[in-house]
Structures are given as C-alpha cells and as structure tokens.
Simulated scan of single mutants.
Amino acid sequence: MRPSIPSKANALPAKWTAILRNWAAGEEVTAIGAQNMRVVEDAFIYRLVWALEAVRTRRVS
C-alpha cells in the first residue's frame, strides 16, 4: 500500500538489515549513526507499525 512504501528519496539503504539489528539490540544512537536514525524513525517506527496495524485491521474486518 502506498503509505507504507518509502519514496525514492527515503528508500532503504543497502545496509538496512544491520541498522535494524543494531536498533533492535538497543545500540546507542551514536553507534547506529544519526543519519541512520531517519531510516529507523521513518521505516521501522512509523511505516512498519502502520502497515502491521493495517493488516490487523483488515483481518478483523
């Protein structure tokens, strides 16, 4: 669905799995990198949660 797909300007970097792994492991922001926190906030906190909630809502209905 369009809201959960990142725009080309906000596309996931090639190393997104490492960023996600570090964030989920509780690494410090300085270790993840301030520039990568935008990926965490946009893709993992906002879009992923939104998409999961959309799937859950659709399943209930």
Rank of each mutant, 00 (worst) to 15 (best):
E27P: 02
I19D: 03
R56L: 14
V39R: 04
V40L: 07
P6R: 15
E28H: 05
F44H: 05
R47G: 00
I32C: 05
V60K: 14
G33L: 09
A9R: 13
Q35M: 06
A25D: 02
A24C: 09
I19G: 05
G26R: 03
F44L: 06
L12D: 07
L48H: 09
N10D: 08
G33K: 15
I5E: 01
N22L: 05
L12M: 05
A51I: 09
K15Y: 15
K8F: 14
K8T: 12
I5V: 14
R56Y: 07
W16H: 12
W16P: 05
A31N: 04
R58A: 15
S4T: 02
M1G: 10
V40F: 03
I32K: 04
A51C: 08
E27G: 02
A14F: 09
K8N: 15
T17P: 01
A51P: 01
A24E: 13
V55W: 10
Q35A: 11
I5N: 00
K15M: 01
V55R: 15
K8W: 06
L52W: 12
W16G: 08
A43G: 03
D42L: 04
M1V: 11
A18V: 03
K15Q: 06
M37Y: 07
V29H: 03
N22C: 05
A14S: 12
P3A: 13
I32S: 03
A51N: 09
R2E: 06
L12G: 01
S61P: 02
R21Y: 01
R58H: 12
W50P: 00
A18N: 08
A25I: 00
P6A: 15
A54I: 04
R47P: 01
R56G: 07
K15D: 11
V49L: 13
R2L: 06
I32N: 03
P13K: 14
Y46P: 02
A9D: 12
L20K: 08
M1N: 12
V49E: 11
W16K: 12
N22R: 03
I19A: 02
I5T: 04
R38G: 05
E28R: 08
A14H: 09
T17C: 04
P3M: 14
I5S: 00
A18I: 08
M37T: 05
L52K: 14
P13S: 09
V49G: 06
M1D: 14
V49T: 13
R56E: 15
R38P: 01
